[in-house]
Write a protein that binds this DNA or RNA. Structure first.
Lengths: 198, 198
DNA sequence: ACGGCCGCTGAAGCCACGCTGAGGACGACC
DNA sequence: GGTCGTCCTCAGCGTGGCTTCAGCGGCCGT
């Protein structure tokens, strides 16, 4: 747990580190809670945010939600309620956007751009990394080659889906073959699926 | 959108249909909001739930969250706030919602492209999967071969309906024969029907 | 009871789908 | 300018899935 007492340092802390949840006070020296939230979301940080405030103008509250807050609490509040709401946020957010993606002993850290299988680090090219990230974000689900193309390549990329096959091939050679594992299964005519353990 | 004015009918509506979000009042005739929430989650329904109440005892609120509510609003509240909170819920829940088709102990998950009978996984080819999905989406109803052809094959497919017979055969061998069950019945001269239990 | 029709199934060919190795294009860096 | 790394294309190959077809069995109407 980490506490920041002013806006800029809070924003920095939330952007850099990996947190399960952020409790954000609107009245802060330096930067308002709104601005922080805005910048956080703009920076692609999707950590659940619970906003805290003494003001209770309803439009402020609505604004906060539309800026990307996940919950909102008006002072004075009881600590019991705060904790319960945090638990609810964690539960809902848990599977939504983990900052470190994990499938079995395979870990991918989007922020640090690193991949590990157990303790050994695996170096991937940007493209390989993108494909693996997309697969891991949808572990257990089926993703089509076109899905991957759209998400990893340019939105309006005009190439063949064969590139995806090629990159899945590269990935298998880096994350599976050396370890005797099998993480990406092919579903003929459908796409690929990241195998979840268990 | 669907509105229920008492507990039991609300529970039924939430369990049966597919909704993006549930707004649940605690004070309801018939069944309390707590009980409904409890049963909903017990039944495996994970639709986001926003609870609504006039009481504001803090422990009630904490309880609601731990029962599986995703948000909580105390009367009186403004409509603007309610809408903003609903948007926040929808945004967070968007990709988490699983749609799984179930007929008896047979389950089909379109997103994960998986089929289970009880605990055993069954692997199907894309065509087999398509036919089974169509049948299960219309469980209990009569489906003609031409229906299946049009829905699973290309819209303007010029082949014979015999393919459908062949694929129903494949399906029976995979989802029924090994289990001694009988899920797809033939209606001579009409089509097929997925047998609903009960 | 019998003939005709409907649906089931096993076999077999064909096609397309996915994998891979080789190689060229492009840019960064020395 | 040369070298290295990355990205992408292409063609060949093997295999799995799709489809067809013919023969058979059973259901139904007469």
């Amino acid at each position: 747990m980490e506490i920041a007492y002013d806006g800029p340092s809070g924003l920095a802390a939330a952007t850099e580190g990996e947190h399960d949840v952020v409790v954000l006070d609107i009245m802060l020296p330096g930067l308002s809670g709104y601005r922080i939230l805005e910048r956080l979301r703009a920076a692609g940080v999707w950590t659940p945010v619970l906003m805290l405030t003494a003001k209770d103008g309803e439009y402020d509250e609505a604004d906060a939600f539309d800026l990307g807050a996940d919950d909102y609490l008006t002072k004075p509040f009881s600590f019991v309620v705060l904790l319960a709401r945090l638990r609810a946020l964690l539960r809902r957010a848990g599977d939504a956007r983990p900052t470190v993606l994990t499938v079995g002993d395979l870990r991918l850290d989007p922020a640090r751009h690193r991949v590990h299988r157990g303790d050994v680090e695996i170096t991937l090219t940007p493209r390989e990394f993108g494909v693996l990230e997309h697969l891991m974000r949808h572990a257990g689900e089926v993703v089509t080659k076109t899905d991957i193309l759209r998400s990893v390549w340019d939105a309006h990329y005009e190439g063949e889906v064969n590139v995806v096959e090629v990159y899945v091939g590269y990935l298998r050679r880096k994350i599976d073959s050396p370890f005797g594992t099998r993480s990406i299964e092919t579903l003929r005519g459908v796409g690929y699926r990241m195998i979840e353990p268990g």
